[in-house]
Amino acid sequence: MLLSPNRMGGGRFVLYTIGALVMAFLLLPIIFIAALSFGDSRWLQFPPPGWTLQWYRDVLYDPRWIDSILVSAKVGLVVMVLAVLLGLPASFAVVRGRFFGREVLRAFFISPMIVPLVILAIALYGFFLRVGVNGSFLGFVAGHLVIALPFSIICISNALETFDESIERAAVICGASPAQAIWRITLPSIRSGILAGALFSFLASWDEVVIGIFLASPELQTLPVRMWSTLRNDLTPVVAAVSTLLIAMTIVILAVVAIIRRDRAR
């Protein structure tokens, strides 16, 4: 242990206090939003005078919100599948390939993470306007795939790097064809990496808002974009209800990732 806590004297209490305060700071908005979404004050009074489920009802009975949820889910799922389909072979190439410029290629694959989102957003906006896919499903999928692909490639290539290639070779020695060895030995061994890559790709698309603001049309808006455009006019508690639903989903996905990780550690 670094400086065991009981040797630190008074500094220990300072450390504990700051830690507790930062944790409270991180939790505050999340708990606040969840509480607000059940409060019955239209004007966001806090603590709320009473409790209600009305804002959730408003979300679930409003076809526009439902529509956005469905758009987000569809885009996210398609992006997830494509990110794995493109990311899996790309990960094999950057991990096992022996060709000139492999490290450059690896850096290129994660470079969309480095470019500020607003720049990527206007670049795509200008490009999609010219090609004529702005405001379309295809545009959303393509735009989100750019930011999801790095997540998928990082997760899968990390898993591939820890997989011992000689096991695959052993399968070939035992008579498997190269394709069989990949399909029945390698892919099952790195499946937790693939799953994590898929989940993070989905989450990257599901949470994406900056690109969406530029690509959205009045008919086609993802959930975060609808939240954003609603917020610009009105701080309605309906957004708190939507936010709480999203927070619940994040908790579920993080729990799934944690369980996958634990299984892999075993």
Partner: peptide, 8 residues
């Protein structure tokens, strides 16, 4: 979600 946190 980023928008949710900023909304808070």
């Amino acid at each position: 979600n980023l928008v949710a946190r900023t909304y808070a």
